[in-house]
């Protein structure tokens, strides 16, 4: 197939199977299929989170097995466990260090609402600190529940708009992302 065929006949000049689609769908599909979670295990839920990464539940089936210790390499923060007042600033900093686009799963009732620990020590819902996309119920949620939460998030990612930043969507707790404007000098390809 030469380029001239396409120039002459348009798409009819292509001799092999080609699927066309929107770039957005492609990006969303690839994002949802390789979302890497940050290890943010706090309490009991962390054990179940690790259990879902292990042999029996195996979240590698969803492209999620690569738990990253560095927030710079992670896309999803799974807040697994109760967030104490002392941990809250740390959690926020880890979240801030993650690259956009980023998502948060609040795993377990303690992270979602404080759970049974309605007292001085526990932040009553991690959504007071970071914007949460999916809440997984349970104390602790079984790996099946976590997988369901992950699947829900994947659907959400696939339906999202790739260029929309969180500050515009109004989700979460009023997070403002400073966007650095791109260079105004056009980049010319193919020239030296």
């Amino acid at each position: 197939m030469g380029l001239s065929d396409v120039i002459d006949d348009g798409l009819g000049g292509l001799s092999h199977n080609v699927i066309t689609g929107r770039l957005e769908d492609l990006v969303n599909w690839s994002r949802s299929r390789s979302s890497w979670p940050a290890t943010f295990g706090l309490a009991c839920c962390a054990i179940e989170m690790m259990a879902s990464g292990a042999a029996h539940y195996d979240i590698a089936r969803f492209g999620m097995e690569v738990f990253r210790a560095s927030p710079r390499q992670a896309d999803i923060m799974i807040v697994a466990g109760r967030v104490s007042q002392k941990m809250a600033p740390v959690l926020r900093q880890v979240y801030d260090q993650m690259m956009e686009p980023k998502w948060v799963i609040s795993m377990g009732v303690c992270a979602s609402s404080g759970g049974m620990f309605n007292n001085y020590a526990i932040v009553q819902g991690v959504d007071q600190i970071v914007p949460v996309d999916v809440y997984a119920p349970g104390c602790p949620p079984s790996p099946e529940t976590l997988i369901h939460a992950i699947e829900t998030l994947h659907t959400k990612i696939e339906q999202g708009e790739i260029m929309r930043r969180r500050s515009e969507s109004g989700a979460g707790a009023g997070i403002h992302v400073t966007e650095i404007p791109a260079s105004s000098v056009p980049v010319l390809l193919g020239t030296r």
Binding site: L42, A43, G81, R82, S84, Q85, K86, M87, V90, M116, F117, N118, N119, Y120, A121, I122
Partner: peptide, 22 residues
């Protein structure tokens, strides 16, 4: 202290029957 949950305080609110959950 990064996981301090105040369980001993909560334990004073729960009855002996409920204490196991804590």
């Amino acid at each position: 202290g990064y996981l301090h949950t105040g369980m001993e305080k909560t334990g004073e609110q729960l009855t002996f029957m409920q204490g196991g959950t804590n």
